[in-house]
Write a protein that binds this DNA or RNA. Structure first.
Lengths: 193, 193
DNA sequence: TTTTAAAGTTAATATAGATTAACCTTTTTT
DNA sequence: AAAAAAGGTTAATCTATATTAACTTTAAAA
């Protein structure tokens, strides 16, 4: 656990400088959990009780619509925060599934412990503010891309922005993330223009 | 200024309880600014130096793509935070324009003053964390809607979610926000199915 | 009050991307 | 090594939405 929590503490430290005391408090509140490929961290309809940081592995967050179609809203890989924030902060049923697409290790923080942790280490409020700023900006950017770029240009942008993710993820999931069919993505990749 | 700042302080107070002292500190750092309909609060390419709260009026945040097409990413109305966050937090040139679509009064906070304010009133970190959570969740939801709903259903959802906004805004801007042409929105509204 | 500009409508035609369905390839399981 | 499952490709046809362009209505300016 100690070695594995190293990246986790480092990640936070990147945004706010932690004292040794604060590291200990944080680590006392979190736990490591392993999931196998295919397992669900959160299921649509359930309340998301944990927020988490990915030590290793990869997840997808997706929505299943009324027609049973899956729509991937985000991928998360190691050294990034992964949580179904909407459900976590409201403690209401999740609109999304979070599923591991590789064996995945997560450092998890229970909702009930988060408030205590904010009291003990107030600078974590700042930490979460900063990563939410980033997440929000990225989300807005994705909306603009989906409205202003052709499917092909969106795909090119995706491969440039997330080359590591693109390598690890089946193509049909990339298509779902881009909001196009797997057939059309295949066509885009194998045709000029 | 005092009466006008009332809603502003109330808004923050809704998320974190402020002492009288804290109110004073906050108010000492912000200023009121008036814009006329059509004026720009931020222009694409400029650095956004202020974040702001709308006292009255309405703005649109939009992106102009390489073909000169405008894409509206958000509307903001009174009693909500309005800022080009990406540019504000990074102090890099903005990707978006923020333009007033009515005469608008803003309470503004200069970037340089924000850090000082966080030091003086640390619970503002929490305040911004909480509103960013909301903003991020709303943004994710919009991505899902744009992928899983027909244009008509997106329009219906928009009118239900933001009835006040829909009344105040020209229809062609609603179309731009939904990512469809004004002609098609007109057709949707005036045709069955 | 007339003129001009801005916003909204209608309809014909065009297209990016969806659907369906058959087939191929790679990976996993037995 | 064979069978099964998962992932990917190709091609024909279909559809939601875009484009173009002419016209109408409403609001703002002169």
């Amino acid at each position: 656990m100690v070695e594995k929590s190293h990246n986790f503490i480092n990640f936070i430290n990147n945004y706010v400088a932690l004292t040794e005391e604060e590291r200990k408090i944080i680590l006392s509140k979190v736990s490591l959990r392993k999931y196998l490929k295919g397992q669900y961290v959160v299921q649509q309809g359930d309340v998301c009780r944990y927020s988490g940081f990915i030590i290793s592995g990869c997840t997808r967050t997706f929505y299943v619509d009324d027609d049973g179609e899956e729509h991937i809203v985000m991928f998360s890989i190691e050294n990034w925060w992964a949580s179904e924030i909407g459900s976590f902060v409201s403690q209401k049923p999740s609109d999304y599934n979070v599923q591991c697409i590789e064996d995945t290790e997560l450092i998890q923080l229970l909702f009930e412990d988060q408030e205590e942790l904010f009291k003990a280490v107030p600078k974590l409020e700042r930490f979460f503010r900063l990563i939410l700023e980033q997440a929000f900006v990225a989300s807005q950017k994705r909306i603009v891309s989906s409205f202003s770029l052709s499917a092909k240009d969106q795909y090119i942008q995706f491969t440039k922005q997330y080359p590591e993710i693109e390598k690890r993820i089946p193509q049909y999931m990339v298509a779902s993330y881009l909001g196009i069919t797997k057939e059309f993505l295949s066509k885009i990749k194998n045709t000029n223009l």
